[in-house]
Amino acid sequence: APTDGAEEEMSCDTWARMTMTSSLAEYARNEECNFADVEQKRATGIALAAIVVHAMTTPSMRWGGDEYPPIAARLTALIDGYCQPSNSNFWLYTACLLVALMREDRRPLAISSSSYKELVETLLAELA
């Protein structure tokens, strides 16, 4: 069992990701949808939800503290393990969300990458 608020939040984030993705193959099959498309939509929704939670968090705690882990750690826990291609729209959308966070915090954005996924990984490292 988690021993502090930040650890509990991370456990909740991991649980949410597992819950949202646990039956994707069955859902895609039942709805006659492409699995990769369903996974991309769920992953995109989860990334947006993390940003919404970040926006609702007390500003002094947004970058981490006793009760909340840093947004980079939360997003990493939420999007960890997706098998989306490195230039998937999921990575592009998530990069846009991260750029918005960095702009809001007035952080520098001198970043280049060879794929959307690499851009997300670089942005997450910058936010940590």
Rank of each mutant, 00 (worst) to 15 (best):
A1M: 06
A1N: 12
T3M: 11
D4R: 03
D4Q: 07
G5F: 00
E7W: 04
E9F: 02
E9I: 03
M10V: 03
T14K: 06
W15H: 06
W15Y: 13
A16I: 12
M18K: 13
M20V: 11
S22Q: 14
S23Y: 14
S23C: 13
L24V: 15
Y27R: 05
A28Y: 00
N30S: 14
C33K: 15
C33V: 09
C33A: 14
A36R: 13
D37K: 15
D37W: 09
E39D: 10
E39C: 06
K41S: 03
R42S: 08
A43P: 05
A47C: 10
A47N: 01
L48N: 12
A50W: 00
A50Q: 09
I51F: 01
V52F: 08
V52I: 10
V53C: 05
A55Y: 13
A55W: 15
M56T: 08
R62K: 15
G64I: 00
G65C: 00
D66K: 14
E67P: 01
E67W: 07
P69D: 02
P70S: 14
P70M: 14
I71N: 01
I71Y: 03
I71G: 01
A72H: 02
A73C: 13
R74E: 01
L78F: 06
I79H: 01
D80W: 02
D80A: 10
G81M: 00
Y82K: 03
C83N: 11
P85I: 10
S88A: 05
S88R: 06
N89T: 11
F90N: 09
F90G: 08
W91L: 03
L92V: 07
A95F: 00
C96F: 08
C96W: 03
L97F: 07
M102C: 10
E104M: 05
E104H: 12
D105T: 14
D105P: 08
R106H: 09
R107N: 10
R107E: 06
R107D: 07
I111P: 01
S112R: 04
S112K: 07
L119V: 02
L119S: 04
V120D: 05
E121T: 04
E121R: 09
E121S: 14
